[in-house]
């Protein structure tokens, strides 16, 4: 085996862009992606959210060059020099898509598959792969097929982290893990991301527990980009009020309620829209605590069936519910 090139460790984090992308699996069926535009900024952890069938996996497989779009452009690369993702060796060697299935040999020992990845991935870190497997208690001498679903997910997580690809994509890989394993994975991911900055895309339905990782969020709905913006901006689209229920109700007024929790006389209500300085001061003086809302509450609201999807060809549009202020 020849030594890997020195450039392997010096590739900048990749950005990704979809321009007017359509994907159809059947000629007459609904498109999986329908004139989708999306930008994934380089050097961020981006959360890709969407309901079942929204087109997340299709979109991610485009970024990895697993397939080409029916029409439109899919570009990846270092900022300022994006290029087509499909059948482009530079893109392929620097983009790692990890699916829940793991994309490893089922009837071989885990170590055999890892060896194949090590051979092909320029920045592969075998020590990190070992660390992830040890932390998540996976025996690499076991055949992949013999592992439980959670351990299979752990193998996928190890592949994704150890590849250190400038664009690393995790497509629901951690769903099979139990809670301690998932949290261990998040910690490993954050630690390695801090040490080796790259672009990471996380697709998950476990929004509540993973949203703390997101710096950028994109939401897909019915094959279209509903929004794509920094996570902080998105959290600022709503406000959470906590305090005596009657006081909270007075300040909520006719705002759209995203979620509501009560414990005795105390209520916590998440509403759509922000409070201006005067409204905020009034609420605080009445003894309320104000905070941002969770992405999960916003996600549920934004992807509810009564919110119209973005219009095609309008860039990366933002849903505009009537009640938003």
């Amino acid at each position: 085996m020849t030594a890997k090139p020195e450039s392997a460790e010096t590739v900048a984090p990749f950005a990704a862009e979809l321009r007017d992308v359509v994907v159809r699996y059947d000629r007459d069926g609904e498109p999986a992606l329908d004139r989708t535009d999306l930008t994934i900024p380089a050097g961020t952890i981006t959360g890709l959210l969407g309901r079942n069938g929204a087109g997340k996996s299709t979109l991610l497989s485009l970024l990895a060059g697993f397939r080409r779009p029916t029409s439109g452009e899919v570009l990846v690369g270092e900022p300022g020099s994006l290029e087509a993702a499909y059948e482009n060796p530079w893109a392929s060697m620097n983009v790692q898509l990890v699916r829940e299935s793991g994309d490893v040999w089922g009837d071989e020992r885990v170590s055999e598959s890892l060896s194949h990845y090590e051979l092909l991935r320029p920045a592969w870190d075998a020590d990190l792969a070992g660390l992830v497997l040890d932390t998540l208690e996976v025996d690499r001498c076991t055949k992949y097929e013999a592992l439980s679903r959670g351990k299979k997910s752990a193998v996928a997580a190890a592949v994704g982290l150890a590849s250190r690809a400038p664009l690393t994509i995790f497509d629901e890989v951690y769903l099979g893990m139990d809670a301690p394993s998932r949290y261990a994975f998040y910690d490993l991911l954050l630690a390695d991301y801090a040490e080796h900055p790259r672009t990471i895309v996380l697709s998950s339905h476990l929004i509540e527990e993973i949203e703390r990782l997101f710096e950028h969020v994109a939401i897909l709905d019915h094959g279209r980009t509903l929004l794509s913006e920094p996570a902080e901006d998105l959290r600022g689209r709503g406000t959470s009020l906590t305090g005596p229920a009657d006081v909270v109700a007075r300040h909520v007024g006719d705002r759209r309620v995203l979620s509501e929790q009560r414990l005795g006389r105390t209520a916590q209500v998440a509403v759509l829209g922000s409070f201006d300085a005067a409204q905020r001061a009034a609420a605080v003086s009445d003894g309320l605590e104000l905070d941002g809302v969770t992405l999960q509450d916003l996600f549920v609201h934004l992807t509810a069936t009564d919110v119209a999807p973005a219009q095609p060809g309008s860039g990366a549009p933002v849903a505009q519910p009537q009640e938003e202020r």
Partner: peptide
């Protein structure tokens, strides 16, 4: 090998 190879960064070529 095909899905594994493409996932590991190989190409159709």
């Amino acid at each position: 090998i095909t899905p594994v190879h493409l996932a590991a960064g190989g190409t159709r070529r």
